[in-house]
């Protein structure tokens, strides 16, 4: 199995890292309303998984979904515009952080409902394979999702009907504030194994390791059509959601956070580049994000008169709420 290009992996984790840091600044300045669920610390998973995908493969993300959207190839400027609620956003300002989608690059959407993406991506992959395409899908999910019945039902359908979906569990140790140890009976990979799904665990902080494991899984999946499950152990560097910056919730000790942050996917990926290559990537990422933020803030906000646009694909017009 050939390894991923270390420069590409580093560029992706660095792009997500700096994107999230810039987005948090925009939350603080009031340009992004409602806040975000930062992906900081988990960048290696989206980067490693998506580096192994083809452009025609599809992914479904989570509420902590910026990394998945960016790693699959969405334009950071349009993603930032979406977070800022602008007409130039991926979703024309209708989705925001938790629903960002870019069907053109195979992102079926971040999703605000925990565990919801698994069945959706399974159906999408099945339908396209029925037309003779040989794509695969990825369902990103958190450790909280493994307790959602709807996801376990999706495991069953994917295994039963041999739909090649890689279920990637980003186990960051907490479902919001609930520790895995207090929430998950049995083990996380055993959830998938119970359905006859091949499952394994990987170090989610090392994008090259994630990539290698994903590439091997996808090769098997493309050959035999069966789904697989990958638990990526990771650590969320920042808050569950930016609201936590104002309301400190006491569930992780400073020592635990320091320990978690000591294994940084950006540093790990960067250590595999020469200082010169690293500096070149960093400069490129800064330029991309500088332009992204500038373009987002310069873009128009949607016209309130268009608030019901896109509600019905059939062209149905809804009654408005006025007297």
């Amino acid at each position: 199995m050939s390894g991923a290009d270390p420069i590409r992996l580093y560029r992706t984790v660095r792009l997500i890292r700096r994107f999230e840091e810039r987005a948090i600044e925009l939350v603080r300045s009031g340009h992004i309303v409602g806040g975000i669920h930062p992906y900081l610390g988990q960048e290696g998973i989206a980067a490693g998984v998506c580096a192994a995908l083809r452009p025609d493969d599809v992914v479904a993300g989570t509420h902590r979904g910026h990394g998945h959207v960016l790693a699959k190839g969405a334009d950071p400027a349009r993603m930032m515009a979406e977070l800022c609620g602008r007409v130039t956003g991926l979703n024309r300002g209708r989705g925001g952080s938790m629903h960002a989608a870019d069907f053109a690059v195979g992102v079926l959407g971040a999703n605000a409902i925990v565990g919801a993406g698994g069945a959706i991506v399974t159906g999408a992959v099945w339908a396209r394979r029925r037309r003779g395409e040989d794509l695969v899908g990825v369902s990103f999910l958190g450790d909280g999702a493994v307790n959602e019945g709807m996801l376990l039902e999706a495991f069953n359908l994917a295994a039963l009907w041999r739909v090649p979906v890689l279920f990637v569990c980003e186990n960051n140790g907490y479902a919001t504030t609930m520790p895995v140890a207090d929430a998950v009976a049995g083990s996380i990979p055993a959830r998938a194994e119970a359905f006859g799904i091949r499952a394994s665990t990987v170090d989610g902080q090392d994008p090259a390791a994630v990539h290698a494991r994903t590439a091997a899984a996808l090769a098997r999946m493309r050959a035999d059509g069966a789904p697989e499950f990958l638990e990526a152990r990771t650590f969320r560097f920042d808050a569950h959601h930016t609201f936590e910056h104002a309301v400190r919730l006491d569930y992780r000790s400073p020592a635990e956070v320091a320990r978690g942050r000591s294994r940084d996917p950006v540093r790990i990926a960067g250590s595999r580049l020469s200082a010169g290559d690293r500096a070149a990537v960093d400069a490129d990422v800064e330029a991309v994000l500088e332009a992204a933020v500038a373009q987002a803030l310069a873009a128009a906000e949607p016209d309130p008169a268009t608030a019901l646009e896109y509600l019905y694909a059939s062209g149905l017009t809804a009654r408005t709420g006025g007297g």
């Binding site: 069945a119 959706i120 159906g123 339908a127 029925r130 039902e153 999706a154």
Partner: peptide, 28 residues
């Protein structure tokens, strides 16, 4: 059986499976 798919008792999953298929142009 590809077009008349009997399902296990998994209403939530097969309903969203239909959503996913529809997103790609199918009409479940």
């Amino acid at each position: 059986p590809e077009r008349v798919r009997d399902t296990p008792l998994s209403e939530q999953a097969f309903t969203s499976f239909a959503t996913g298929a529809a997103l790609t142009g199918a009409r479940p």
